[in-house]
Design a protein around this nucleic acid. Structure first.
Lengths: 156, 156
DNA sequence: TATTGTTATACTCTATAACTATA
DNA sequence: TATAGTTATAGAGTATAACAATA
């Protein structure tokens, strides 16, 4: 990271700080980053295996193992699709939801802790800037950030 | 990562975006994230295996394989320590240095591209906020993917 | 024929424990 | 004894290719 790329450098380092925080926190709950991401996605979605593959940018064969390991631990559950007998939907169990809720709360606490050096209004501004970067990127890739608010997302 | 965890959600997703960018970019060069981190560290250091373990927060036994795979590809080289016959120092080869330099340049370009959706003044504000967070934690964590390099110190 | 999901396979990455060589 | 490094082993995570069941 050179001096000529101050913005990119700061963004990258901030991202690594947050990523590392999430990684350590997930580990305290016996979760890897992929497992934590899976549970995080399932908090407000009930996707099929294929949809999970797209959301996580992984091959469908990788999803099989990821979901199976989570299922073996009782954190998620496979359910046959009602409309397509080829499809399987994945959802959190009660235990899985409790775990991801605890972890998310702690994560929020830790992130807030290292935002202590900012004023409340600055924290809001940071959230706003981050959200806009994400929105711009998501729209450029046709990814659905808030599926619950979209009634009928057409598939490509 | 629910909607109520606004700050944590936005920062977590932003970190996945940046991390994923590095992952894809590294993959284009045939590198994994751990391999990229290894090469990044070696850009301005010639550590022993034990020192690498500390820098990467990995067990020494993990370093053995990491370095061996990089060495097999001709990217790094093991050299016996001159002062301690138990020790091995690791350094980049010419090819390894060329590879990590190309990758780092591309990474900077892509991260900068995320910021195109912001106004220049907003980019400045983001830099300010991120830098202050990082400064408050400068000593707490060493993610160190591509360590901030001095202006243009010549490598030997 | 196309899509959904799993299986078989191979590789990287990681840690723990046991080991060798050197200090 | 203590430290540096490797090896043996086990498991998670990932992709590719081949496959079965369903659309």
């Amino acid at each position: 990271m050179s001096r000529t790329n101050v913005v990119g450098d700061a963004l990258a380092q901030l991202s690594f700080l947050v990523y590392g925080t999430l990684e350590r926190l997930a580990a305290e709950h016996g979760l890897s980053i992929p497992q934590a991401r899976l549970l995080g996605i399932l908090r407000d979605r009930t996707p099929t295996m294929i949809e999970l593959a797209k959301l996580l940018s992984l091959d469908k064969s990788s999803i099989t193992g990821l979901v199976s390991r989570a299922e073996r631990r009782g954190l998620v559950k496979r359910t046959p699709s009602a409309t397509d007998r080829r499809s399987t939907t994945v959802r959190l169990t009660r235990n899985g939801r409790a775990l991801v809720s605890r972890a998310a709360t702690q994560f929020e606490t830790q992130v807030s802790a290292f935002l202590d050096c900012l004023q409340p209004s600055e924290r809001g501004h940071l959230t706003n800037l981050a959200s806009r970067i994400l929105a711009a990127h998501a729209s450029s890739r046709d990814i659905d950030l808030f599926p619950a608010t979209r009634p009928d997302a057409p598939h490509r």
